[in-house]
Amino acid sequence: MNYAQLLFPDFSLILCGYLVCRYTALNRTVWEQVESLTYYFLFPVLLFQSIVRTPLDLQAASSLIVAGLAMGMLSIGLSYALPYLPWIGHRINRREHAANAQIAFRFNSFIALALAERLAGPQGPQLVAVLIGVCVPLFNVAAVWPMARHAQSGFAGALLRNPLILATASGLAANLLGFAIPQWLEPTTSRIGAASIALGLMAAGAGMQFGPLARAKVLAISVLAIRHFILPLIALGLSWLMGLSPLHTVVLLAFSALPTASSCYVLAAKMGYNGALTASLVSMSTLLAIASLPFALGLAR
């Protein structure tokens, strides 16, 4: 499979946003409004639709769910621990870490769904939908907590106001209750979802600056190493310990090597943090996934 070709559309949209913002009249003033539209409306609709679309067979995928949650908890723990590690902890800015710890454990669900059927056949999309449904609420809570804590704002209030968490939780509940989006409404929600992908990635590019990466090299290397090198190794270990089937192993390893979520930038910017650094990390993660996906799937073999 040509992973570079698969990831090129995402990275090219980030590049388009960067160029349009800097070399046309569509400057930061315009893109700030695009960020708000994406964060409060487009992304929530996409998340809800993605989770509701495929029935979740929790019993059949129970071992994969446990492995996915265990991998997620370990990645969150590693990410949270970075400022306290010897040798590197004192070189990491606590505020920048609060906003960018999420880079290490969140994932791009669009690319996950695009890869699913090619890697795992007809069962692939359903297995990936299960992982998305159970992991997204955990990861969104884990992304919000350090930012709310560092800003000394109410954590519960931040969660209740977070449209991504609300959309994911309501989508999971609706799926388990057997709710389906009416057929006549599906084209509309699909188009909203497609718009959220394009605008979210372009907004990340519009806010991108590579200068912040040079000033936060230790943090950048640390979170990207967890996301693209350590997580595939953890996934391999969990698949062996839990005796996952070859199909579940391939899905978990691919899941472990995905680029980080493009909405990381939108979340950090909307909570008052340095969105430029987060956008740069999202772009680097998308580029690194071209190498980490073949690495992870090579471990499966």
Rank of each mutant, 00 (worst) to 15 (best):
S153N: 07
L176A: 08
L159I: 02
P125L: 14
V141W: 12
G178W: 07
S109R: 07
A158Y: 01
N100P: 02
P122Y: 08
P125S: 07
L119T: 15
A151S: 15
V134H: 00
H150Y: 10
L172D: 11
G171I: 04
A143K: 07
E117W: 10
A143D: 01
A167N: 13
A158N: 05
A156S: 09
A173C: 15
P163E: 10
A104V: 00
F155G: 10
E96N: 06
P137Q: 10
F155Q: 04
A148E: 11
G133N: 07
I111W: 04
G154V: 05
A151M: 06
R106H: 04
L131P: 01
R118S: 09
L127P: 00
I165C: 02
N140L: 14
Q123G: 09
P122G: 03
L127Q: 00
A142L: 01
A167H: 05
A148G: 14
V128M: 05
L115D: 00
A148D: 07
F139S: 00
V141D: 09
G154D: 15
R161Y: 07
C135Q: 09
A116Y: 06
G157L: 15
M147F: 06
L159K: 01
L115K: 01
F105H: 10
P137H: 12
R106Q: 06
A151G: 05
L115Q: 00
A116R: 05
V134E: 02
F107W: 15
F105A: 12
F110Y: 06
L113D: 08
V130F: 03
A120K: 04
F179D: 13
F139G: 00
G171T: 13
R106F: 04
A129C: 13
L138F: 12
M147Y: 01
T168V: 04
A112F: 04
E117N: 10
L131I: 14
Q123E: 08
A151C: 12
R149V: 09
V128L: 09
L138Y: 03
A151D: 08
A143Y: 00
N108S: 15
L164H: 02
Q102T: 14
A114D: 09
G121T: 14
F139W: 06
V130G: 03
A116H: 11
G171L: 09
V130S: 05
V130E: 01
P146N: 11
Q123H: 09
V128H: 03
A116S: 10
A167T: 11
L127V: 03
N175R: 12
S109D: 05
P122F: 12
L119W: 11
N162W: 00
L177S: 12
A99M: 05
S170N: 15
Q152C: 11
L172A: 09
G133H: 02
G154W: 03
A169V: 13
G157H: 10
A156L: 11
A167D: 07
H97L: 15
L119S: 10
N100E: 08
A169G: 13
G171D: 14
